[in-house]
Write a protein that binds this DNA or RNA. Structure first.
Lengths: 335, 335
DNA sequence: TGATTAAATCGAACCGGTTCGATAGAGCTC
DNA sequence: GAGCTCTATCGAACCGGTTCGATTTAATCA
């Protein structure tokens, strides 16, 4: 590998002049610039990013930290960020914490050790320790998906209260009254908001929610399945189930199928967030989806803005909340 | 941030002794080791990974390069690799080329610039240029998924010929003769092998394959949909469709649903590779799946072996080919 | 006790860049 | 031609570690 000193020797100038010419060509005379360019081409010089990062104190990379890269929601956002960052000369490094807060912390620390220019982070934690940890990081960060109370950072997400309310209202319009809700973890902002959207809408309609109709699905497949089963074995069954996310809703569909209930004839089903092959799932689930492309675009622009604009780093944090979209399916019937 | 010089000053030893103590405690006297340990704790010293990588010439990170991290197949493998690598003190950095060979090359070069200890790579290219590129890299690499002719590296994958043959045989056993095949890109090893598995099995059964029954689905959703439509509008329709991967098969299912064909009553369907929510797709597709956990485990162990064992680097490349598994569904009927 | 060897520690060079103050020379003014 | 400003270039220090040959110290042996 050719080093900058090889270039300097060949071009017969000092190392510092080469470095200057490469980072700020305007400050070098035309003649020496030519010489240096030739030398660079001749020896095939490419600057070592590691050495650059060490000397500069920061790299031209941004980190993308989520709990599950396999989730298409995060996948879309990643793609948007990547395209935008690449256009602005930055590489995206992806890390997956598998939802484990401790692992996420370690990964974030590692990325910061790598002198990342910035981080796009879907927070996995929520306690004070975690908030302090994120707050103490001295690096541009854009948080997304989960809004964590206490974290003073840019945030990009969807209106989850509205998402819950939209589907609830839809079910009410279809005549449903016995609506069950499979909730997510209570420490997650998206989960509580969706739950509130459901409860508020029911309350506004003057309908009391049967406490047995609210079960905890933890946003996961296994817990969602269990929660759905608990709903379905009750003597007084709900006429509709609202899943707070895709995993719990589809687990409910599976449970229904296994017990011999037909959807939507016996029980209607609606969910928040899409999955990859929803178009071939029968019935097509009525859902509310987030605008992942828009979210990804905002995250990307905001982060790169903070990174590239000198004064961008000190701008006060801002929240960007997008409106989700209703996507009708045929999993909800009128009763 | 505390540096190694702060530690040396506090412990009243030289910088080199601190470095030595940290990397090879046995070669330092018990007394100084204690002093150094105390000093490290006192100033909160953590070695800068960047500086270490620069000085050592390599980092303690491995790169994971695929065309689509969102694909659960790659997701499972990533998880296995990550767990194993973490246990051996290495971080995994994920990059997604979106299937673009040029982007993949740039990413691989960037990772090598980062002095990665090794790479787990699902090759996206196939031409001589690409083979030369991969061959020219002086770093432990384990390739997986696609076997590329000419690349002399460890390879971990499944027996794709067998995968195609298994499903074909299954359909033959059920009495099908007019079996259609939605193929993948001809430059991909997995695609050609699966195709050969289909053709060989048909030939062995003495059945001539109608050329109109072999269509190109490019392993993608859109091309798969188009290919399936071409199959379904023929006057002489197939009684069964075999999709060379999950995307083309599920696109075919969608096309069938849209045209009003019932599966399996009108047309049977089988596919290679699972998808995330296959259990709630109706009908449950009969398929052959790869053992992703086993694949991931082998990739992880092989890569870490090459990285950590001094002589591991020079061992000749080896192929690991696993047997896929038949998973019956109810998308194929006897005729 | 002096010579020999092994163990512990150190100093300096190095990895490959960046940055900043110093210096030399060119161009301009009076 | 002295004085001044700008521009182009350079040298040296630095980022924060590692490594290796040299040196000091301690232990072993004749």
């Amino acid at each position: 590998m050719a080093t900058i000193r090889d270039v300097a020797k060949l071009a017969d100038v000092s190392v510092s002049t080469v470095s200057l010419a490469l980072s700020n060509p305007a400050r070098v005379s035309q003649k020496t610039l030519e010489k240096i360019r030739h030398a660079v081409a001749a020896v095939g010089f490419v600057a070592d990013p590691l050495a650059q990062s060490l000397a500069r104190g920061r790299s031209r990379m941004v980190g993308f930290v989520v709990g599950n890269v396999g989730n298409p929601f995060f996948g879309d956002i990643r793609r948007e960020l990547e395209n935008y960052a690449l256009d602005h000369g930055h590489f995206v490094l992806v890390t997956d914490s598998s939802g484990k807060t401790e692992r996420e912390k370690a990964m974030v620390e590692h990325l910061i050790g790598l002198k990342m220019a910035g981080l796009a982070l879907a927070p996995s934690g929520h306690d004070q320790d975690y908030v302090d940890f994120i707050g103490g990081l001295n690096i541009p960060i854009v948080c997304f998906d989960q809004k964590v109370a206490g974290i003073e950072r840019d945030f990009v997400g969807s209106d989850n209260h509205l998402a819950g309310a939209m589907l609830t209202e839809h079910l009410l319009q279809l005549g449903h009254r016995r609506i069950a809700f499979i909730a997510g973890p209570s420490h997650m902002h998206t989960a509580t908001e969706r739950y509130r959207g459901f409860m508020d809408t029911m309350a506004n309609a003057g309908i009391e929610v049967n406490p047995n109709f609210v079960v905890d699905g933890q946003f996961t497949r296994t817990a969602g399945y269990e929660a759905a089963m608990r709903l379905l074995i009750q003597p007084e069954r709900p006429t509709a189930i609202l899943g707070a996310n895709n995993a719990v809703a589809l687990s409910a569909l599976q449970a229904m199928q296994e017990l011999g209930f037909r959807c939507p004839e016996d029980i209607s089903l609606a969910m928040i967030d899409n999955v990859q092959w929803s178009s071939v799932i029968t019935p097509r689930i009525t859902m509310v989806v987030q605008d992942t492309l828009a979210l990804g675009g905002i995250i990307a622009r905001r982060l790169m803005h903070r990174i590239t604009n000198p004064q961008g780093a000190v701008e006060p944090p801002q929240d960007f909340v997008l409106t989700p979209k209703f996507v009708p399916g045929n999993s909800c019937r009128r009763i």
